[in-house]
Computed example of a mutant assay.
Amino acid sequence: MKFVPRSETTRQRIVELTAELFNKKGALGTSVSDLEKATGMTRGSIYGNFPNKEAVAVAAFDYNWERKRKILFDGSDVQVSFKDRLLAHVLLHHPSARTSFTPGGCPLQNTVIESDDTNDLLRSKAATSLLIWTQKLVDIIEDGINAKEFKANTDGLTIALQIISMIEGASLFFRSTQDMKYVNRLLDAAKKIIDNICV
């Protein structure tokens, strides 16, 4: 029998109030007591809107990814040049930008690190989201090639993978070392990759 939440409004409120918690502690590290504390709701109220804790974790991931996706894609789409559209993805990740991503780091990285051996549904969702982000960069690069802003022989997928790897690597280094020099070097390297494909 299909689960039907008691209230879509309450369900959304639960997601918004637990999104940061799941992004920081993960699905395994977050207890039902943590959910009760974060929402101010009873276990019964939470499970009246979700069949189990995993369902809350999945909804929280979707919320965190959509928040990040919207910030990145909207921030990129408003740029005039294709170079600036690519750069927006890099620059919005620099701490100085104070971008309003969900606190706790990249939800894609967090989810993959935790779930690759423990939760195939969450791993799969993170993988799909990562590929959506990758394709967005590929599309920008291909449009830039067609507009003769980027070199004709540019391999869009390779460049997109390099940019995302630098961004995610910067997050990993900062969270582990707390040293901004690694963030700056990696994000500068991503900017050079973009510079190098310009005509």
Rank of each mutant, 00 (worst) to 15 (best):
R69W: 05
L121Y: 10
T42Q: 06
I71C: 08
D116Q: 12
R98G: 01
N146K: 13
S45R: 10
A147L: 02
K68G: 01
E114S: 03
Y63R: 08
V78R: 12
T99E: 04
T134V: 03
P107M: 07
P107L: 07
T128C: 06
K70T: 15
F82M: 07
A147S: 06
D117M: 11
R67Q: 10
S33N: 14
Q135H: 13
T102H: 05
K148Y: 06
S124H: 07
S124F: 12
N110M: 10
T39I: 04
L121P: 01
W65P: 02
L86G: 06
K68Q: 07
N146A: 15
K151D: 01
G40P: 12
V58G: 00
D116Y: 15
D143L: 13
K70W: 04
H94E: 07
F61Q: 04
E114V: 13
I140R: 00
H94L: 08
T42F: 13
N64E: 01
D139L: 07
L35F: 01
E36K: 14
H93M: 10
L131T: 02
T111H: 04
I113G: 00
T42R: 05
N52D: 15
T102A: 12
L121E: 15
P51A: 07
T42C: 10
K148C: 02
Q79E: 14
G75N: 03
A38F: 11
K70S: 08
L92T: 03
D77A: 15
V90M: 13
F50G: 00
K148P: 01
G44W: 14
D139H: 06
S31D: 14
V90H: 07
S129H: 04
D62L: 06
Y47C: 11
G75A: 08
Y63E: 04
